[in-house]
């Protein structure tokens, strides 16, 4: 029983990070129809910016957080403005965007490597452990799960209830009609990149605090985010969160029984099974338009 609970908690912890990434990816796909795999390096950039400000420069925590959010938001928006929007103007289709996003992912990783070196960074963050029902959770882990849930909740709320959020969903449904109604879809896309990049920065910060930062982890994070959004149904924000929970928990089960080496293989196996048997994902909609 304790084992199951512990696996569950660890799975939810991993899902807290994946969810912030996958939610943004899925949302970006919905609003811009781009699978922004370079999102992985936006996460890494946020994590490193936070580490640099907090551990290297000794800034207070809150200032380092704000700095990281700004760095990631600027990186994401810049990728959109200087690469994706340019391609869009030229009428580029799917494959062109895929090549561009892989190029950005590789380039971004190289920049992080050049700036911070290959050695992983850790925080050695002081935290206390709590035991209840035979399960061990640190204060930090509690805050990671809470922060992620809160951010995703706020994000969902803005999408659901604010005028701008509704306009984003309208653009996701049908960009041309949104334009006909006077919605500035270019501005919508820019904001979508800013918002999802802020979620990405939060993921990077949480990874830095709980695990460690590795300049090459962007690719793997992008793949996990991609897998979670496919499982949830591409374009569905809530689906991406459920997908993250599934991946996070299954990974922990696999790690428990098979060892850590099987962790990433588990992600791919789930992804493969979904692509085979349920390619539209759990909450994928077959749009009529």
């Amino acid at each position: 029983m304790e084992v199951i609970l512990q696996i569950l908690i660890n799975g939810i912890l991993a899902a807290s990070v994946y969810g912030l990434i996958a939610g943004g990816l899925s949302f970006l796909y919905a609003t811009t129809k781009i699978f922004h795999l370079a999102h992985g390096v936006v996460v890494v950039g946020g994590g490193y910016a936070f580490w640099w400000a907090a551990a290297k420069l000794g800034w207070p925590m809150w200032a380092a957080v704000i700095f990281a959010l700004i760095v990631s938001a600027l990186a994401g928006v810049a990728m959109n403005e200087f690469v994706y929007e340019v391609l869009r103007k030229k009428g580029t289709k799917g494959l062109g965007y895929l090549i561009a996003t892989l190029a950005l992912l590789t380039l971004g990783t190289a920049v992080v490597l050049a700036l911070f070196g290959a050695a992983p960074k850790t925080f050695n963050f002081e935290t206390s452990s709590h035991e209840a029902l035979g399960v061990v959770v640190t204060t930090l882990q509690f805050w990671i799960i809470a922060t992620s849930a809160l951010l995703l909740g706020i994000f969902y709320w803005t999408q659901k209830f604010t005028k701008f959020g509704k306009a984003m969903r309208a653009t996701a449904d049908n960009e041309t009609v949104a334009e006909v109604l006077g919605i500035d879809t270019k501005r919508i896309r820019r904001s979508a990149f800013a918002l999802s990049s802020i979620l990405a920065a939060a993921a990077g910060i949480l990874i830095g605090l709980e695990f460690n930062l590795d300049p090459n982890m962007g690719v793997l994070l992008a793949v996990k985010g991609f897998a979670a959004s496919v499982i949830g149904g591409v374009g569905s924000f809530g689906g991406a969160i459920i997908g993250s929970l599934i991946i996070g928990i299954v990974e922990q089960v696999v790690v428990w029984f098979g060892g850590a080496g099987w962790r990433n293989a588990a992600t791919f196996l789930i992804l493969f099974l979904f692509l085979l048997f349920k390619p539209s994902g759990l909450f994928g909609s077959k749009r009529e338009t």
Binding site: K163, R169, A170, D173, N174, V177, A178, R287
Partner: peptide, 13 residues
């Protein structure tokens, strides 16, 4: 907009 409600569609108008 298929995923928006009737009211939300009108609001977008």
């Amino acid at each position: 907009f298929p995923s928006l409600t009737v009211r939300e569609n009108l609001e977008m108008g």
